[in-house]
């Protein structure tokens, strides 16, 4: 049996994925995570450090890491890169002031060697707000089409209403499983 077949079998048995959720502070990362888990989202504090949740979805075990995005925490992001299958980049679509900052941080991340194999899902969050940019506008401002190093997708969503969250996660799971569970 070749190594690739072995690897495929191993991962298939576990069906486990490691997802890393990053983005600027206030993007809504923790709110997305709690919404997924059916927890209360009205009393969430800015994240000092990180949260980790294991979610079961479509027979997969998703280990989701939600790391705080405040400036002083960004230098710690690197500690969470190891073995990441999927990177979820969360954007506050209504925060027009910081979109360039957001773009810079994202493109910097994509140069990280340890995230080289990860699939990228961009959540254009807070679509429920009247002032939110559409996901197409976010795609253009963040210059996503220039990304050639990673599989990527952008989905407009709202952590408050829950809309399109599943759609994004399902795409992510499909892309990752096509990559790591079907290596031949």
């Amino acid at each position: 049996m070749g190594l690739l077949t072995v690897l495929k079998k191993l991962k298939q048995k576990e069906k486990e994925m490691r997802l890393l959720m990053l983005g600027l502070d206030n993007a809504g990362k923790t709110t997305i995570l709690k919404r997924f888990n059916g927890e209360d989202i009205d009393t969430i504090s800015p994240t000092l450090g990180f949260n980790i949740k294991t979610l079961e979805h479509r027979g997969f075990k998703l280990n989701v890491w939600d790391v705080g995005g405040q400036k002083s925490l960004r230098s710690y992001w690197r500690n969470y890169f190891e073995c990441t299958d999927g990177l979820i980049w969360v954007v506050d679509s209504a925060d027009k002031r910081r979109l360039l900052d957001c773009k810079k941080e994202l493109h910097q991340l994509l140069e990280e060697e340890r995230l080289a194999g990860a699939t990228l899902l961009v959540f254009a969050n807070k679509q429920d707000l009247p002032g939110a940019l559409s996901f197409e506008e976010i795609r253009d401002v963040l210059d996503l089409t220039s990304i050639k190093t990673h599989h990527w997708q952008i989905v407009g969503c709202s952590a408050v209403t829950g809309s399109h969250l599943l759609e994004g996660i399902d795409w992510l799971i499909d892309d990752i499983s096509a990559r790591i569970f079907a290596l031949d």
């Binding site: 190594l3 690739l4 690897l7 991962k11 190891e82 073995c83 060697e113 080289a116 194999g117």
Partner: peptide, 21 residues
């Protein structure tokens, strides 16, 4: 080589991961 390594990380112990990296 990098791709091969990334695809194999889940069977490796942390030490081997670091060394290979």
């Amino acid at each position: 080589l990098q791709k091969y390594f990334s695809a194999s990380t889940m069977i490796l112990c942390l030490h081997d991961v670091r060394k290979s990296q």
